[in-house]
Each structure stands twice: as structure tokens, then as C-alpha cells.
Computed example of a mutant assay.
Amino acid sequence: MLRTTSLHGRERSVTIAPAILIGLASLVAACGFGLGPRDSHEAAGVFPPWWSPARVIAAASAAGPVSAASRQPFVVVVRAPQGDVAARLRRAGAWLILDPGLARACGSLKET
């Protein structure tokens, strides 16, 4: 009986896997085509959620001065006069780069 339940769980995983993959692909496409920063001098970085707030701030600071932080400790906004903030946030470990306006709309940001 336990074996049957285990197989049922695997079958269910296989059934929903395509839907999950399509959803993730859609999210990646949307982020790549419309949610990215409009200004090369400012961007919001979404870091791994299990990172400590100190690690997120340290990584984001490597990309430039942190200008705002989200209520979620893994989302920060960096503004730097030299530009190319998005690429530097990616190199620092950010999973996703967003326009700061979108990050502000998703949750309250505290200016630093």
C-alpha cells in the first residue's frame, strides 16, 4: 500500500512538471523582456532568499551603493553613477534584476 502511494506521487509529479516548466519559462521571458531596469545607473536585485540580510547587503554593495531595501531582506536597489548596475548585480549573485519601480510596486522599499 505504501508503495502504491509513492508511485501515485511520482505520477502526479510527472503530470504537473510540464505546467511548472511552462510557468517558469514564462516568468523568465517576462523578466527578460519587460521587467528589467530602464536606467543603467539603478536596478533592483533579487538575491537567494536563504542568504542572510548581511550577505545580501554585502553582495549588493559590491555592485554599487545600496539606495533602498525591501521588506523582504533579499531584494535591494543599487544606484551608481558609473552605470551597468544590472551586470554588476548579476556578478554579485542576484538571481533576478528588476526595474526599481517594479520592485517598489511589489513591496515597500525603505530608502537608505
Rank of each mutant, 00 (worst) to 15 (best):
V66P: 05
W50S: 15
A44D: 09
G45K: 03
Q82C: 10
A80P: 03
V77A: 05
R71N: 13
Q72P: 14
P65E: 15
G64S: 02
Q72N: 07
V78R: 04
P37V: 10
F47R: 00
G34S: 15
P49A: 11
I57H: 14
G64A: 05
R79S: 11
P53F: 06
A87T: 10
V78I: 01
F74T: 07
R88N: 05
A62R: 13
S52K: 10
A60E: 02
S52V: 05
P73T: 11
W51L: 09
I57T: 13
W50P: 11
P53Y: 03
L35I: 08
V78F: 00
G34H: 04
P65K: 14
A87I: 09
V78Q: 04
L35W: 13
H41G: 08
W51E: 04
F33T: 12
R71C: 09
P48D: 08
G45E: 01
F74V: 03
F33S: 14
P37F: 01
V85I: 02
P53I: 06
A58F: 07
Q82M: 09
V75K: 01
G34Y: 10
V77D: 00
P65R: 13
G36E: 10
F47A: 00
S40I: 07
S52R: 10
G64L: 08
S67Q: 08
A59V: 00
R79T: 11
A59H: 01
R38Q: 14
W50E: 15
V66T: 06
G32N: 12
P49D: 13
V78P: 01
E42V: 07
R91I: 07
S70M: 02
V46C: 02
G34P: 08
S70Q: 06
V76N: 00
A58P: 08
E42T: 03
Q72V: 11
A86L: 02
A58S: 13
F33Q: 09
A69S: 12
F74I: 03
V46L: 10
R88S: 12
D39N: 09
P53G: 12
A87C: 10
G32R: 13
R91C: 06
G83M: 10
F33V: 11
P81K: 12
R91V: 05
R79L: 07
G32V: 08
A44P: 12
V77T: 05
R55S: 14
S40P: 14
S40T: 10
W50L: 10
D39L: 03
G64P: 06
P48M: 04
A44N: 06
A60C: 01
G45T: 03
D84E: 15
V66S: 09
H41W: 06
V56Y: 10
G34V: 03
V56P: 05
D84P: 11
W51D: 04
G32A: 15
A60N: 02
G83H: 12
R90N: 07
S52T: 08
S52A: 13
P37R: 05
D84N: 12
R88T: 04
H41C: 05
A44S: 13
A44Q: 09
Q82V: 13
A63Q: 09
P73M: 15
A69Y: 12
S52L: 09
Q72G: 13
G64C: 04
V77E: 00
A59R: 03
R38I: 13
A68N: 06
P49S: 14
D84M: 06
S61H: 11
V75G: 00
A54N: 11
A68R: 07
Q72W: 09
W50R: 08
F74Q: 04
